[in-house]
Design a protein around this nucleic acid. Sequence first.
DNA 1: TCTAATAAATGAATGACATTCATTTAGTGG
DNA 2: CCACTAAATGAATGTCATTCATTTATTAGA
Lengths: 243, 243
Amino acid sequence: MPAVSAARGRPTSNGAGQKRRAGRPSAAVLDKSGITAAALELASRKGYEGLTMAALAKVLDVAPSALYNHVASKQDVLLLVEDHLMSLVDVSAFAAGNWEDAVRTWAWSYRNVFAEHTPLIPVIAVLPVTDAPQTLAMYETVSKGFSDAGFPQERIVPAIVALESFIFGSAYDVTAPEDIFESGSMADATPYFTAAVRSSARDADPSGGRAEANAQELGRPADTAFRMGLEALISGLGALRGR
Amino acid sequence: MPAVSAARGRPTSNGAGQKRRAGRPSAAVLDKSGITAAALELASRKGYEGLTMAALAKVLDVAPSALYNHVASKQDVLLLVEDHLMSLVDVSAFAAGNWEDAVRTWAWSYRNVFAEHTPLIPVIAVLPVTDAPQTLAMYETVSKGFSDAGFPQERIVPAIVALESFIFGSAYDVTAPEDIFESGSMADATPYFTAAVRSSARDADPSGGRAEANAQELGRPADTAFRMGLEALISGLGALRGR
DNA sequence: TCTAATAAATGAATGACATTCATTTAGTGG
DNA sequence: CCACTAAATGAATGTCATTCATTTATTAGA
């Protein structure tokens, strides 16, 4: 009955570093959900460079090798985290509203969740949904939403994949440095591009000149590009519905 | 004059493993372009797991530490490779044809190049264009294409970024296993999704039943999704042009 | 022309990791 | 009661990228 150990207080760290002696403890210290939670917390706090098996073990107050009784590899840990994050993606709008609004809500939420976790994106690309119940649940809700909206069966998966591809790519874009497009010394050689960069930077400020804190939020270049692409996809894909 | 050493025959590997003695050699053995070429060749032949500094040094017939006289880090090597790949992206269609066709050609080419090199995608996301002349050249051509097509200045960069995000995400999708969406034992719990997956797999064969070798090429699920998303983006973004 | 600085190589550490293995202890099924 | 399995510890291992001291060659300046 793992429920007992899970319900017990202070699941990690037994306070004053009294070390556990070797051998199986009476109550199991580790389980997948604890590992997942600790990994997520660690990644959020220290970034993915800080998410090492040793650091994870330390948070959980075990020896690193103990982790391997519960996961096969570090990749496995990332899979657990990834699937957990999928449960944070907001699919609620597919229940009620119209398709356009539902896709908008879902896509923004999806991008925002993974923008903080881009190192997981390569993991997702190879992850069979069988091993990822939360991921599967998300796909089910979204698929139903597309079906209800009148999408022909055979176009549902490609349409979702196209949106997801855009979302993952856009999540990376969020992490890019603001000045990534500064051409510096080469500016003379690239007049069109340089002008375009200047002009988009100006336009990105929604306050029309009163550039303050909101320049970070509403005016983030990544948000402008995401909005533009998403609206294009919504209208273009929406046209594929059978009325 | 590095041209001399570059023009010399057998630039890598001095045949019968006679080792170079310590100290600076009369003719430089390494330079950035040689390192780039060797890294690309190694990655293509062995994959990115095989691209280690030690393996790279071996191909170039030097000690691993010698590489650090020319690049600051492995990340630096990836940057060199990445920028080189950008020169392989086909931007030629922006010179002549109409905007839609040019974007189509460019996007397919871009995706196909990076589908083989997805480990570089996280690198690109952080790479300032200043350090990447080929990348900058590509942006210049594309920007000019958008400008000539009547795009307002301030919308050019966001539109390109949106397309690029979709392209990078789609490049990952190409690498995904074909059966990634097989829900297996959970199929009962996800009827809509399962039906959609079945149906799209059937539809992916463009020969309408005569499934042969082309099922791999034209009918790849990733291609269907890419085509669908790209056409949606082209028509959606195209609408933003000022006539 | 000598000489100091710099460039470019070698080879031997270093340190961070993930992962494995032998060992110990504790439940569990027959 | 006993063999088996599960879950810990702690001590390797092996693979990496990276650094450092050292050696040799080229080059710029006096």
